[in-house]
Design a protein around this nucleic acid. Structure first.
Length: 558
RNA sequence: UGGGGUAUAGCCAAGUGGUAAGGCACCGGUUUCUGGUACCGGCAUUCCCAGGUUCGAGUCCUGGUACCCCAGCCA
């Protein structure tokens, strides 16, 4: 029941609840039907959360079924990746994954059934001719010259198509519905096309493959799916979906319900475009942390809970919409705020020498792993005479209200003492290369009574800090809607600064981080130890999302 | 003057005839050894527009307008 309170109402959830309450069905079966021709992205996550979430909430089941009717575009690697992503998100499909190709035999029998009923025929028109015969949006189509072949001839031709006697594109099996239908999907849609391609599941068993329309609803029916939830672009296919169910001896009649697909600003959610980014090496694979793929988000540091929360926040409706990326940022920040241990890490090091600290003195502070989570224990923070602080935390000529270090000014080193900047050391080029500061030893765990020191900055001991590579990721695109303008290639909107690599220095505890450990680097952001880097002997942290930066915001306002 | 959909704040989204939820973003303030978090407050006299019905309309009716999807042997 916690599921129910955690999930916002939406029209599909309401509909199922009403149906169940009024006794129109005893239980529900949903399905998530990806085509294994690419990796799953955040839009699929919405569908996954919806389908699996509904099944979970109403005590039903959700099948994972690969919609694998186009062998030329599909691959086993995608199947494996899709399964892993769904499991990582925290969902189970119960039993084995299913494949539309499991039903190829039945589908073929049903095609023959349609032929025998005079409701399907083998056509000789090629693709181009078929387009001409189909008519346009405003003009009706006209019947193919082969539309009235006899049942016997159709059966024979279909059998020979299956045996591979014809070349690809030479023939196709079509439903005989209505060439003048205002809904173009009803103008004798193709049921089977010839493809002399090896299929990743069925090998060389078939020379013909069923179309989506001829496969999807029947697969739903064969699996006992009660609610076939899909995106809006399939709405026009619903009459066809229902036509097959009505004209075939199917064991039950699932209902198709459509909802609006997810669009997110500053990114693209189109498998075709994502594949292009991968194929052109614009990103480092499908799971590049900048990709909106589930595996990319995982590598970036998103948690399964944060993605599920996001899907819950955005809701489910039928209006086309574009969700603000801040919703996603909010979802991950709120998870990590509660659950990520804290650490200090200096991105762009600036040397600080404590002038009133003995050269060989070392003091180790025990500080909380998380300010509000005792269960996260304590960590050790060694302090020495020479430290690193972030370059951004020092300004030689600071503006008003700059609460960090500046000549003659004081700041607290997080978890330790207040220091004052007494001297600024520059190199020949005039760059600040070192700060000489003095420690006020009477400020540990308390504030001075005669003055207010508002600033707190993070730091790392020079002798104990561990070098780490930090990859700061930003939006892949620099405009809100990269694919809005049809005349401009979306690649032109690529953000040249989507990745910034820093040779940073982290506190000692970070040396122990294991793959996918997440931290808040205090005052900076949330970071995730890269899944793969450790195997390569490198210590790499990916920035999941920055902390909100009130100072930067104030600066911008002037 | 093809068909199918959708319009509620900058964004997402509840709402199904009884007087506009919630979240994000944004703007103030309080607290704070993270300019973070937390907390408090602000943010639609009005629901695409115009008429109509009704004691009462975001919800019903009529007529418009805008936007999205469809002419793959892709899904």
């Amino acid at each position: 029941m916690s599921q129910e309170s955690a999930s916002a109402a939406n029209f599909i959830r309401n509909q199922l609840r009403d149906e169940l309450e009024s006794g129109q069905g005893a239980s529900i079966v949903t399905r998530f039907p990806p085509e294994p021709n690419g990796f799953l992205h955040v839009g699929h996550a919405k569908s996954i959360c919806l389908n699996f979430g509904l099944a979970e909430q109403f005590g039903g089941v959700c099948h994972l079924r690969f919609d694998d009717t186009n062998p030329e575009k599909e691959e086993q690697v995608y199947i494996d990746a899709i399964k892993e992503d769904i499991q990582w998100l925290g969902f189970e499909w119960g039993g084995d994954a299913r494949f539309a190709s499991d039903y190829f035999d039945t589908l073929y029998e049903w095609a023959q059934h349609l032929v025998r009923e005079g409701k399907a025929y083998v056509d000789d028109l090629n693709a181009e001719q078929m387009r001409e015969y189909r008519g346009t949006l405003t003009e009706p189509g006209k019947p193919s010259p082969h539309r009235e072949r006899s049942v016997e001839e159709n059966l024979d031709l279909l059998d020979r198509m299956r045996k591979g006697e014809f070349a690809e594109g030479e023939k196709s099996l079509r439903a005989k519905i209505d060439m003048a239908a205002p809904n173009i999907n009803l103008r004798d849609p193709v049921l089977y096309r010839i493809r002399h391609a090896r299929h990743h599941q069925t090998g060389d068993a078939w020379k013909i493959y069923p179309s989506y329309d001829f496969t999807h609803g029947q697969s739903d029916a064969l699996e006992g799916v009660t609610h076939s939830i899909c995106t809006l672009e399939f709405e026009d296919h619903r009459p066809l979906y229902e036509w097959f169910l009505a004209n075939l001896p199917v064991p039950n009649t699932p209902r198709q319900i459509e909802f609006a697909r997810l669009n997110l600003n500053y990114t693209v959610t189109s498998k075709r475009k994502l594949k292009l980014l991968v194929d052109q090496n614009i990103v480092d694979g499908w799971d590049d942390p900048r990709m909106p793929t589930i595996s990319g988000m995982r590598r970036r540091g998103y948690t399964p809970a944060s993605i599920r929360k996001f899907c819950d926040m955005i809701g489910v409706a039928r209006a086309a919409s574009v969700v603000d990326i801040h919703m996603l940022y909010h979802a991950i920040r709120s998870d990590l705020e509660d659950n990520a241990p804290r650490a200090m890490c200096v991105m762009k090091p600036l040397k600080v020498v404590l002038t009133n600290w003995d050269a060989d003195r070392e003091e180790v502070f025990e500080v909380p792993g998380h300010p509000a989570r005792d269960d996260m224990g304590m960590r050790k923070l060694p302090m020495t005479k020479t430290l690193w602080i972030d370059q951004d935390d020092f300004m030689e000529e600071p503006p008003k209200k700059f609460f960090r270090l500046a000549p003659g000014k004081e700041v607290r080193l997080r978890n330790t003492y207040i220091i004052r900047c007494d001297e600024v050391i520059k190199n020949d080029a005039g760059d600040v290369v070192e700060l000489h500061c003095s420690v006020d030893y009477d400020t540990l765990g308390k504030n001075p009574e005669d003055r207010k020191v508002k600033g707190v900055i993070h730091w790392v001991s020079e002798t104990h800090g561990v070098p780490i590579e930090v990859r700061n990721y930003d939006n892949l695109f620099q405009v809100e809607s990269p694919d809005k303008d049809k005349d401009i290639d979306f690649l032109e909107h690529l953000n040249p600064d989507s990745l910034e690599i820093c040779q940073a220095i982290g506190e000692p505890a970070l040396a122990e981080a294991r793959a996918e450990d997440r931290f808040q680097f205090e005052r900076v952001g949330y970071f995730c130890a890269d899944r793969y880097a450790l195997d390569e002997g490198k210590r790499v942290f990916n920035r999941t999302v920055s902390l909100k930066d009130g100072w930067a915001k104030a600066q911008k306002k002037g």
